[in-house]
Design a protein around this nucleic acid. Structure first.
Lengths: 203, 203
DNA sequence: ACTGGAAATGGACATATGTCCATTTGAATA
DNA sequence: TATTCAAATGGACATATGTCCATTTCCAGT
């Protein structure tokens, strides 16, 4: 039988349920905002039972992640091209941070919902998921490159610094700065860029 | 009548309910962990109704904040003394970050619960609360001092950098680094200290 | 001491998430 | 085509949070 990744492919009815749920969720979220729509309501609108809904998507965060998937793939594709290009590693990192900030702005509602769903037992999922791990890999690689090329000092702890940079653009802080402190995206990104610039080892 | 802060003091029965709830919560949290205890259960153990419970504490996060209050006051008192002392501002900031990391370790369970409760409409409360605002004030003041004394470069955006440093010690990332990545507190703190050191303007 | 009325109270209720399980369905194999 | 059984399904159920409101209690002013 046709398989994928070593395990049986989804059955046709499962695929169909998934499609119906994603469609209903997209429409309801659009109409009334992510927070105002309940899982039961999504199930009802999609014409599937709760069992089906939760079998396809473990929880609301997982459903929102699935809705983000297309955007994420676009982001990752673009990042792969730019991050892998030539030129100063520090320069590429600066670009990456700007692009990530834009991603935040463009997907604030879903990112916020994904975050909200990651509490209690699921707290770890904020960081242990393919998207965060991808971000981490990109940033860490650029920092290592910058270090090898002598752009930044040897003493820095690259792994920790990677998480620090990403935390500075975490959706919670980002939305607080944007909406509560009324900071512009430019300002937030520039602050990180000047931080990196201030680290630069001068010949 | 005796007032405080311009509004009527809490009635005796209200004070008593608050005391009973906090006592019951402390005991239950101790016995079975914060996540495993429900609000209704706390009300029952405290011998008060749901109306009373929720009138005293808007939600579980607020209850946990109240339980943290004593620890927070100790932290803030110590911080006031050390932050206001003489010596290099950068040095005092390094101390502050280490102390905050210790605070995280010592209060991980309650801090985590406070965070979990801040979702959806309450997302903003993660940053708009007296504790975070206090941290922010301390770090920003130290950074401004460091800048005025020429320890760090003029180009840095102090307000943004304050949030970045605090995000690096936010409870989510902190617990991920400690528990998932198995980093020691020392390593996490040192990474931030060397970041600050790398910014230092050399004579 | 008495009293007016704001604050406090308890528990039913409304709403949300997420689980369970008896039944049905689909696709790989005979 | 017939058989088989893991996967999928729906909706009742269990459990959680948080609101509502009729009733009671406290206390400041008289």
């Amino acid at each position: 039988m046709a398989v994928e990744g070593g395990r049986r492919r989804e059955r046709r009815d499962a695929v169909e349920s998934r499609r119906k749920v994603l469609g209903a969720a997209r429409r309801l979220f659009e109409e009334r905002g992510v927070d105002a729509v309940s899982m039961h309501e999504i199930g009802r609108a999609a014409g599937v039972g709760q069992g089906t809904l939760y079998r396809r998507f473990e929880h609301k965060g997982a459903l929102c992640s699935a809705l983000l998937q297309e955007e994420i793939e676009g982001f990752e594709e673009e990042a792969r091209r730019r991050v892998g290009s030539r030129g100063s590693a520090l320069g590429r990192l600066k670009w990456f941070l700007g692009r990530l900030a834009r991603f935040n702005d463009e997907n604030a509602a879903l990112l916020g919902a994904v975050r909200d769903a990651a509490g209690g037992e699921r707290r770890i999922e904020t960081h242990r998921n393919p998207f965060y791990e991808g971000l981490r890999e990109n940033v860490a690689e650029l920092l290592w490159e910058a270090l090898e090329e002598g752009e930044i000092p040897e003493e820095l702890d690259i792994e920790c610094m990677t998480d620090t940079l990403l935390a500075a653009l975490g959706i919670d802080l980002y939305l607080y700065q944007r909406r509560e402190l009324k900071m512009s995206r430019e300002r937030i990104v520039d602050s990180l860029r000047s931080l990196l610039e201030a680290l630069r080892v001068r010949g």
